[in-house]
Design a protein around this nucleic acid. Sequence first.
DNA 1: ATGCATGCAAACTCTTTGCAAACGC
DNA 2: GCGTTTGCAAAGAGTTTGCATGCAT
Lengths: 149, 149
Amino acid sequence: MNSTHVEDRARQLAQGLKQAGLRLTPQRLSICRALAERKDHPTAQALYETLQKSMPTLSQATVYNTLEALVELGLIQDLGEAGDGATHYDIDPRPHINLVCTRCHRIVDLKEPALDGLAQRAAARSGYQVLGARIVYYGLCPECQHTTQ
Amino acid sequence: MNSTHVEDRARQLAQGLKQAGLRLTPQRLSICRALAERKDHPTAQALYETLQKSMPTLSQATVYNTLEALVELGLIQDLGEAGDGATHYDIDPRPHINLVCTRCHRIVDLKEPALDGLAQRAAARSGYQVLGARIVYYGLCPECQHTTQ
DNA sequence: ATGCATGCAAACTCTTTGCAAACGC
DNA sequence: GCGTTTGCAAAGAGTTTGCATGCAT
């Protein structure tokens, strides 16, 4: 997870958008770069606030639109909300478990081999065309278990 | 899934609330019964609208509060939103796959033995106290795959 | 040059909140 | 009777929308 890796990932996301026929605007590039730099599971608002520092005219709509496009392309995951009412995104599109703390709203990833191929099997059994996954367990993180409130 | 089963399930939910120290109000009983009768994965609003016919003074807050209590007790599942912006609930709390159609917003359940014990293993590996799950694949249902829009 | 994308701000919808009245236990 | 729960309505927050302007290709 060095800076080269971050740049590669940003390029992957941007290339994905381009190959889908979307234009590579400075805003979209910035969003892809911001996503690749993130080590957490940001919300649209969090990305917007971060990006606004270097791009004051950026609008929320652009952030939401770009995230939606990336999700539909399967390049990032839409994790739903984490107890804070806002949708969180996962930069890693590979199937894995997301552990959400409903108290501090932090999310950690967990590699889980049992999930490999599960989406394909589910698709075959149900007839659904599966476009994305949301494998989330929610509860309390180790830290929040030991706090009174 | 006959009417006896529905009544049993409603009683289970109500008993769960009672054992948690919550009072068995007519509103809560109605919500439990409405949940047990459902064969789909309703939103809070959908339940509210259904219940309002027989209980005109019921407030949205009560529906939201009761659903939140049932989720925290692990009696029902909070599936997050299904592409329509509203949170859907699953009456069945056992671990299984939920297939969400992002076009018609229908949700189907899929039994999946690979999920058994997964929550416990994830909890052990991560230190999280796991209180609930949200195992969702989203995509297009067989019907919506064959519609132009 | 063409038409997709952006910015802006208002609108929309789901959900939550506060407080007085009602009622389960 | 006590303390929780409800109802009501307004507030709150995340997200979406519409349209004129701007820019990637």
